[in-house]
C-alpha cells in the first residue's frame, strides 16, 4: 500500500505568545521560534507507518513549504517515512488553503500510484481544517476529516470521525484522503538510528515548472481569499475598581450579582 502524508512545517506552538505584529511593517515577527512538523501531522505519519508495517508498501512525505524547511521535514524521514517531496517555489508564496491544496494535489498526482493520503486535521498556525477536504475534492478522492479510528479490513475501511460530544462511524474504500485527529494514535518517538538513516533517504524538490502549474493558480495570485490587516486581540475599557477587606469586597460582589439579575 502506497501512502502519502502531507506535512506542514509550523513554528512551534508553545512559542506563539512570542509572536508579535511589528507596528511599523504590520507584518508578523516570529524570529527565533523553532520550526517543527505540525504536531497532528505526526499522528498522520504514525498512522501511515502502522499501515505500512501491517500491509507493506511505502510512505512518502509531501510538503509545500519554503526550501529552508528541508531539515524540519527530514524529521518525518527520521520517524520512518521512506521518501520526501518538498514542493517549493516563489510562486507558491502567500497561498490560501485552496491554492495550497492545488499544489499538493499536483505533487501527489505526479508521484502517482497512491492508495491513501493522510494529513493532520488542522495546522497549529493557520488552524483552518480545510486541507483534508479540499485536497480530497481536487484529487477526486473521497475524504473525511477529524479521523479518530481507522481499521482496514479486506476491502472495506471502517472509520470514526469526531463530532461535538460524540463520533460518526463511516465505511468506505480506497483511495481516500483522511484528516487525522490527535486521538487516532500516539506518534512514536524518533530513534537516533532513524536520524542517521534519514540523511540518505530520497529527498526531492519540485517547483512550479516540475508540477506543470500555472502561476495564476498558485500562491497569493491563485488564492480566492486575500489577507488584510493583522491585529492582536484588543481590549480596552475602564473597570470600576474596588479594594478592601474580603468581607466588604464580598458584599460589593453580591450587590453586583443582584443588579445583574443572577442572584435573587
Amino acid at each position: 500500500m502506497n501512502i502519502a502524508v502531507c506535512v506542514k512545517p509550523v513554528p512551534e506552538p508553545r512559542h506563539y505568545d512570542k509572536i508579535i505584529i511589528n507596528p511599523a511593517t504590520k507584518l508578523l515577527e516570529r524570529k527565533g521560534i523553532p520550526m517543527i512538523i505540525n504536531p497532528v501531522d505526526k499522528n498522520a505519519i504514525e498512522a501511515a507507518l502502522q499501515l505500512k508495517e501491517q500491509f507493506g508498501g511505502k510512505v512518502v512525505l509531501v510538503s509545500m513549504a519554503p526550501p529552508d524547511t528541508r531539515e524540519t521535514i527530514k524529521e518525518g524521514l527520521a520517524m520512518g517515512a521512506d521518501e520526501a517531496y518538498l514542493l517549493s517555489d516563489r510562486a507558491f508564496a502567500g497561498a490560501d488553503t485552496l491554492a495550497t491544496a492545488r499544489v499538493l494535489a499536483a505533487g501527489l498526482t505526479k508521484i502517482g500510484g497512491l492508495d491513501l493520503i493522510l494529513t493532520g486535521s488542522a495546522s497549529a498556525d493557520g488552524g483552518t481544517n480545510h486541507i483534508p477536504s479540499q485536497l480530497g475534492e481536487l484529487m477526486g478522492f473521497a475524504h473525511l476529516n477529524h479521523l479518530t479510528e481507522l481499521h482496514l479490513e479486506a476491502s472495506t475501511i471502517k472509520m470514526k470521525t469526531k463530532i461535538e460530544n460524540g463520533y460518526v462511524e463511516y465505511e468506505g474504500s480506497l483511495p481516500l484522503v483522511l484528516g487525522v485527529a490527535r486521538e487516532l494514535n500516539t506518534p512514536r518517538y524518533t530513534t537516533l538510528m532513524g536520524v542517521v538513516i534519514a540523511q540518505n533517504k530520497p529527498f526531492t524538490t519540485w517547483g512550479l515548472k516540475d508540477l506543470g502549474l500555472d502561476p495564476s493558480n498558485t500562491g497569493l495570485s491563485g488564492s480566492p481569499t486575500q489577507p488584510g490587516d493583522l491585529h492582536m486581540p484588543q481590549h480596552g475599557q475602564k473597570a470600576q475598581m474596588f479594594a478592601g477587606e474580603p468581607e466588604d469586597m464580598a458584599g460589593k460582589i453580591i450587590a453586583i450579582l443582584r443588579t445583574a439579575g443572577v442572584l435573587d
Binding site: 493557520g126 488552524g127 483534508p132 477536504s133 475534492e137
Partner: peptide, 23 residues
C-alpha cells in the same frame, strides 16, 4: 464552525473553487 460545518464548508469551497475563511 462545528466539526460538520468546517468540513462541509471546505468541501463546498473546493468544489466551487471559491474563498473560505475559517473559524
Amino acid at each position: 464552525a462545528s466539526y460538520y460545518g468546517s468540513e462541509l464548508s471546505a468541501t463546498v469551497a473546493a468544489k466551487l473553487e471559491t474563498g473560505l475563511a475559517a473559524h
